[in-house]
Nucleic acid binder design. Structure first.
Lengths: 209, 209, 209, 209
DNA sequence: GATTAAGCGAGACGGTACGTCAAGTCTTGTT
DNA sequence: AACAAGACTTGACGTACCGTCTCGCTTAATC
């Protein structure tokens, strides 16, 4: 998997792209994101801080979203996958770790800005899905694989939907700010996922899980 | 609760605000949102379509996000609260109804745009939380109240977190586009919420807070 | 005749154009032309010096050439039409006055830059012809009218061509820099125009047309 | 005198300059000038059409003006010096031939563009003066030498100023477009130069030619 | 009925950032 | 060394919207 979004130069001929410029751009972009957030993040300012022409940026990144994404990747350090011995413990550790990374941090602020940008920049949307969302999900599915191996959950349990519940709830609170990303929230989310609301019998729809 | 975001005029003296202009603005805004989406939604264009001065818009709405919000409210017709006799049925109906409203529709596109805007416009964020998120949640809590009354779930079940799981999963797929908002997705979400993954005993993680 | 190139606002409605901005733009433009010449004359710099948005300039002047022209008009003070009592004296005074105005001066430098710009900017070419070249020529024709009245030259003498010889020679040396605009040059030009090379009879080319 | 502006290579070591590249560059440049005029004439486009690196162009020509000049030289075929037997006939033939070459032709358009460029590119100004203006003038002075030999004009007649009148008038109309380069214009210019306006006596300045 | 205060459409205002273009220079691997 | 290719920095371009600010003109409520 490539390190960044940067597309390869169309041919092998000609002067190679300067890795030094590249580093300067990413450094300036990260710094700017950290200091000011996505709202004040402009190509112009990055270009000026990195002492690089705007064209040098546009040669590498098609939109400012994709540049911000690359700068964000360095910042959002990959969190170690928890392995507590139980699914419940793993899920709780994962959600808590995510909350710690995003709640009240510049990372969280950037994350919100990027998800906003994803909604308007289709180029970024592709990158975001393929280079951020999917890898994270793939990693996280291991928690469910292990639970199946341990016999904790059925082999056909839908890990995809489970992940949507776990992180969906988190992103929901992050993006809508209706309620805080508290520790109690994390526990309750995981408890609910593991045990359910326990409303199997009375009404009863098609109860097949 | 007022129909729109519009603040009251400071006094009663002078020429009253034209309700006709107001209607023209909202109509133009809705039309523009529907046609072009939030990305091309500019105050300039609304002003030009509505044949209204820009100041007339800014007198009523502080930011373009709040105007878009009001235009969106008309579009996003309030969905009837389902009452199927079981929590599972209610949740499934609610989620399916939401998916029908947003999947592949201009409403869904606008919804994505608005949530994006909420991340950068604090004025809109307040309006969004108080006039959209909270009302919808309040309405939806009824489903859990009824389930408690029916004895389906415990009285102290956390409806807030349950709603975060239900809609959080939906918004997650809407905003990240990693997987489709299929009917199967809806069923699985609800099944999981109701029955859980069923991994209570074997592993038994740190079950405290 | 209007003072400047500036086109009228399309309608009478809306906020009127600020005459103060206009003055600031023209002042900054003149200053810049004088200091740096046409080569460094940029809309960006004018906008920055005049503390005016670029759009405010573009609203009035379609191209940078037309703005430079207006700034130049103030600088290139209309020279008083000489009246020495003889055509020879008038022509000599006029040419010397022109040389004094352009030789080694910032006006001369700007004049060269503007004529260069005229070759590439059709908008400016029209303005230049109608608002600079023609008025100057009209004024200068008076010298020939007076000479006819005095009986110095024939009534059907071609004043247009005479002006082309007089100023054409001057502009030629200004633009090609092959020889200096000396005082001797002025005298010789006028003598030649008045007396001719005196090669009427011996050779006798095709004297028709 | 060298054919082009191209400076000699610094040493004789290493790979010799490709004459093929040189031809390709000049061909592409001429073609581009002819098709699009000086305004759209860019080194980038020449380089792309000639399939030649930009450095290969800059190795030979210091600025785009000098390249355009060389491309123009081929186009602007040297006109044969007229020899009609009289000064009047020679001057008329020369001016008409020039008019034929530049009026409404791509050569004329390029000529205007080059003179414009001369005003801003000092490198080109030198080349222009030494390799275009002076040679043409030297050639044209022969017409006056012959006239002196024939006894048509005085031996001390100022041929330089005479050339400034002849071509100055032509360039004036070419560059200012205030009046057409008609055949009648040519005749009148020459008549005036040969016979003068005939205003020797009444006013009378220092009438020494 | 006159006054007065605010709203009205229109559009200009100072700004900011956009994405593009071409200039002339530099850096590869290849010839 | 020169070559083709295509990177580089620089700097200006002309455009688009932002949110604010005049204009001359309604339009009511208050005096």
């Amino acid at each position: 998997m490539p390190e960044t979004v940067i597309p390869a130069a169309p041919t092998r001929r000609g002067r190679p792209r300067s890795q030094q410029s590249e580093r300067a751009i990413l450094a300036a972009a990260s710094e700017l994101l950290e200091e000011q957030g996505f709202a004040q993040f402009t190509i112009e300012e990055v270009s000026s801080r990195a002492k690089v022409g705007k064209a040098t940026i546009y040669r590498r990144w098609p939109t400012k979203g994709t540049l911000a994404f690359d700068a964000f990747q360095a910042q959002f350090a990959r969190q170690p996958l928890p392995d507590t011995g139980s699914l419940r413990g793993d899920l709780l550790a994962a959600l808590r770790s995510w909350i710690r990374a995003v709640k009240g941090t510049s990372t969280g602020r950037t994350l919100r800005g990027l998800i906003a940008e994803v909604q308007r920049d289709p180029e970024l949307a592709d990158v975001w899905r393929d280079r951020f969302v999917q890898p994270v999900r793939t990693r996280n599915r291991t928690m469910f694989d292990r639970a199946v191996a341990r016999g904790e959950i059925a082999a056909d349990a839908d890990a995809e939907v489970a992940l949507d519940l776990l992180y969906g709830a988190g992103y929901h609170r992050l993006l809508q700010s209706h309620l805080p990303l508290s520790d109690r929230f994390a526990t309750t989310v995981v408890d609910l996922m593991v045990s359910g609301l326990g409303a199997g019998e009375p009404g009863g729809g098609s109860s097949g899980a």
